[in-house]
Each structure stands twice: as structure tokens, then as C-alpha cells.
Nucleic acid binder design. Sequence first.
DNA 1: CTGTGGTTTGATATCGGTATCAACCAGACC
DNA 2: GGTCTGGTTGATACCGATATCAAACCACAG
Lengths: 337, 337
Amino acid sequence: MEESPGRTVRMRDVARAAQVSTMTVSRALNTPERVSPEVRQRVAEAVQAVGYVPNRLAGSLSSRRSNMVGLVLPSIENSLFAATVKGVSDVLRRAGHHLMIAESGYGPEAEEAAIRGFLEQRVAGLILHDTLHTEEAVRLIRRAGVPVVENGTLTPTPLDMVVSYSNREAARAMTRHLARLGYRRIALVTLPAAANQRSRDRQAGYRAALAELRRAVDPALMLEMPPGLASGAEALLRLMDRPRRPDAVFFAGDVLAVGAVLECQRRGWSVPGDVAIAAFDNIDLLAHLNPPVTTLRLPRHEIGVRSAEMLLERLSGRQTGPAAVDLRFEIIQRAST
Amino acid sequence: MEESPGRTVRMRDVARAAQVSTMTVSRALNTPERVSPEVRQRVAEAVQAVGYVPNRLAGSLSSRRSNMVGLVLPSIENSLFAATVKGVSDVLRRAGHHLMIAESGYGPEAEEAAIRGFLEQRVAGLILHDTLHTEEAVRLIRRAGVPVVENGTLTPTPLDMVVSYSNREAARAMTRHLARLGYRRIALVTLPAAANQRSRDRQAGYRAALAELRRAVDPALMLEMPPGLASGAEALLRLMDRPRRPDAVFFAGDVLAVGAVLECQRRGWSVPGDVAIAAFDNIDLLAHLNPPVTTLRLPRHEIGVRSAEMLLERLSGRQTGPAAVDLRFEIIQRAST
DNA sequence: CTGTGGTTTGATATCGGTATCAACCAGACC
DNA sequence: GGTCTGGTTGATACCGATATCAAACCACAG
């Protein structure tokens, strides 16, 4: 008797059933402590009886508040971001907020379109993985006045808030770690740096480490490759083909290191005997490969959690200023180095 | 001069600047062909000048149409779903729609909560990966009257539309494939089947294949394991520890097969010499492992694409009836079997 | 010059809630 | 009793767009 589709149940229907005004229904649902227990009970029953599902569109329009957060990722398919999404999602759900996801495809114009779309939906806040934005995107965000968290790297010029680890420091630490282990010729493979601040930061960290060690940077040992397993294998082969081979390769991107280790298996090369291999991300696979691969433990999940928390805090009006959160990373030494 | 935050720009501001009514602005933006070219131009300029960003909340409320689609996945972290999400996302974006994502955590109650949340936001349609729903969830959907696509498996009793491959047929095909290759004792490892229709369908397919081959099902060769690399390794060890070892193991879930192959590498077991290994999903890693692993090519991306397309078609009012789309899978024979 | 039909535009009500402020009530206090 | 207080409740005006219907306008046929 309550299932026929077609008629949407409005708050006024609940109000009628509970013999109160819509305003009281609204209060009973949103601020129950401001309604007498008896009425609260009547409203709850009426909600059940008529099968009321609140219309957040109307609510948000009227209150000028929204419970949606927009997240823009470079790529939805890249599983590295999954942990961050999960962190964001968990925190938001607990707070009764909802998550919208869009993809920037590694391009600022696509990011701008995504941001515009979110602002049209009047999201309460934005989480952006990229730190490079079009001028128009920045203008849109500024004008909308929504809080924003950037995630990709610890940019010195954040729009608003940043939550990340330092790509530069992480790359620097791993490079120094490899040097400490005795490797003399350490190669670095990154994703194309042109449109990718993260890759640039990692390269900078690598250079800084070598400089501190008073070693020259050999351009022949720095390579940029597209993402992917095959790509990692190819990078390794190219480097090993050089007149003066590296004795260690630091794959600072994606699953490149996995591809390289698998290629070593195929060639029968010993890791780390013939060449040591280090990775940048703690995907579980790295721990199970043969040999297990030295890598960095990055706070992917925590980035999501903290980003969402900071947004929520800002929305609740408690915190005001911009903020930068520098999360810790950690080196996991395994048999591959 | 147009950047000060605080004042939100409304359609009436555009109207004033363009010297027309809000209704004409609305038309110029949504149905430009119904506005004279000259006015259309004036409105476009006014939009630029005042920096107008439409409020979709108001628009959707008024028109009773929405451009948001809700997607509920068992797990956001599981990278298997990424391809589907990508497919959905691409199609929606092109159509000017937006994607909201929530997680059911493999539980119908969590799914119900997610669905309720989406309906409160008045999504235009839903895409659900699970096919098991609470009664209340079904009621909510029915009453809301939104189109729904289910994805997980080809359920015989869909809520509305289904887009999937047949888990049963896929498992059956792979089992027969292994038999054809000459394997006599074929083991099956799945995820826990209790709350997972997909696992049950795969088990059913395996049983059906054996029945057709007039072989008995040996319960000692059927195992249920939680997801994960370590889990796959352990499953393999358990099976190989049995008095009568399997000569082939079909890992019908997640990354179990990867864990198993890596364990074989560690033990120095030859694949497929000591034991053949087959997987269920075409993650690229499987092609690069040593040996490369026989598996199924599943239409993950296409499921997303078709799901979104069917929703959009329904929303545009063209199609009316329920529908089931059975997408093709394919066996990829590699060196591991 | 009038009538007809098609196109372009605007006035107004409405979508389903919330903000705001006023009304009401019981008890405390003078 | 009168006044004040705090706690509940409701009337009403929005929030920012779109649906609907009517008016204005235009060209052209009769």
C-alpha cells in the first residue's frame, strides 16, 4: 500500500501524518534535540508510515549547504589512488557526506571541466590530486569559496590546504639509502615529467641526494617512461644496454619496478646481484615478488583520511586558515637491494 | 573585478546583464535553438562577464531531472572494478552526467544505506555491482522509480536491467578448457561463497563442466579463500599437501592466481609441469608473470560502458522495458597450462 | 487591412525543503 | 498578578532554477 511508484512523498505528507508543520518535521530530522520527545516519536513513525525519503536537492538549495564532496583524480584506473579514495570515502560516509569522482586524465583542461561540473553541483568541498591547474580553474574555485585539499605533492603554493608526503624527500631518501648500501651507479626511472609535478619532485630529490653525496648526475642514468609493466621492463633493458651499466635502478613510478623484476626473472639476471631494484610505492605485490622489492611505504590511505577530515573540519566552521600536512613515508628494505 | 568571493552569481544577474528575462537565459543555455541567435550571443557574453556557474541543485529540483548517477561497488580498493568504473565514467562524462560512488563492503545493509543516500540526492539512475539486496533496498528503488543496472552476474531475477558476463559459463568454459588440455584432477579455488553470488555461480559452472565430462566432484579439490596474494599462495600449498594432488588449479577469484604462481617460483615448482595454474581475470600482470598465466578475458570495461549507455538510453525515454545483456568472455591460453 | 500560424519572449507558479522570526506556553521570580 | 525566561511550534518568505501558458511580434496569405 506504500509501494506504488509515481507519487513522490514530500515532507508535507509526513507533516500531515504526524499532525505537525513541515518545519517541525525538518527539525525532528535534522536537529532532533530541538523537538519534544513526543513529537519526535510521532514524526519518526510518520516517516516510516508514508515512506519518506528526504530530498537533499531541495534541502541543500534552501540551506545553501551541501553534503557532497568532489574528488578529481588523474586516472580512475590507476590502482595507486584506490587507497586514497577508500580513505576519503570512509571518512565522508561516517559524516553522512557523499563522494563524487571525476577524472582529469592528467590534463589541466579536463581537470577544469571536472571542477566546473562539481561546482555546478554545489559541492561542499574539493579534493584534487593534481597541483597544476588552469587559471580559470583557480578563479572558479576562488569565487565559489569552497575549501580545497590538494594531494599530489607538497606544493609550495597551495590553493588552500595540502595533504601529502614530500615526493622530493621520498626520492632523496631512497637514493641515499641505495648509496648507503654501497651502490655506485644509481639510475632513476620516472614517469614523463613534463606535465607531472610529482615526477619533477622525485627527480629533484634524486639530484639533491647525489649532490649531497658529491656525485655527478649522469644523464644517461635518468630515464622517463610511460606507465605500465612493459614499460618498466623496457626501461631496465635500455639501461642495462648502456656502455656503463647502473648497479641499481630506482623506479620512481607506478608499477615500473614490477615489470623490471619480472624481466630480470626472464633473463635469468640475479637481483640484486646483477642489478638492484627499488620501487616507489608499497603495493602488496612488491612484497611477494621474487625477490621481494625494496620500496617506500607511502601514506596513501592516510592522505585520503586526512584530506576528508580537514575538509569536514573546515566545513564545520572550526578551522579557518590554510594548512599543509606533511605525512611521513618510510623505506622498506627488502631482498632486491 | 569579478573575483571577490561571497556573492554567488545567479541566473538573474546574467539576465540583467543581457537585458532579458531569466527564462530566456535558461533557454539560451539549455535549448539554444529556441532562442534567437542575437540574444543567444548576448547571453553568452553576459555569462562570461558576470562569471555565471549554473546551480544544478536548483535546476534539478525544478525540472525534476537529475544528471547524477550512483554507482555502488563491493569495494573501492579492489582494482578489478576500476575498469568498469572507467567505462561508466567515460560514457557519463560525455553525456554531461556525473558519477557518485559508494561502497557496499560486501554487505546488503551497507548497500541499502548507499542506495538510500543516492536516492536522497535524487540520482537519475543506479548501477549496482551486487545482485543481492535487502527487501528495503528493493522497495526504495521501486518506489523511487529510477532505472537500475546490475552488474555482478547474470541474475535470473534482475531488478530492472542487467549487464554482465555469465560467471557460471566462464567457469564452466575454463574447466572444460583445462580438461581438454589433458588435466585430470582440476581444483577450484574461489572467494567465500556464502555472501557472494559470483563465487556460487563459478562453483556451479565448475560442477557443471565436471558433470558433463562424467567426472566426480572431489570436495577436497574445492577451496574457498579470502582475497589476496598471500591467500592464493596458501591455497596452493594446501592443495598440494593433499594426499592426491591436483594437476591443475583454477583460481576463480581476485589475485589468488598471482600469489600461487609466485609461491611456485619460490618453491622451485615448475608451472605447468608440477601443477598448472589458471586465473579468472585479465589483469595485465598475468601476461607478464613467469610463466604467463592462462586466464579469461572479461569485459570489465565494456560492462561499465554498456551499463551507462543503457541507463542514459532509458533516461532519454527511448527504451522502456527491462533488459539483460550477456557480454562475451574469452579464454586466453598461456604457458601456465 | 485583417486573419493565421509560427517563432521568440516574459510573468508567474512551483519544485521541496530551510531560515527567520513571531507566537505560545509553563514555570520562576519579584 | 505581572514579567521574564527558555523551550516548542508554526507562518511565511525565500533558495535558484524550470514548466507552463500567455503575450508580443513577424511574415505572409487572402
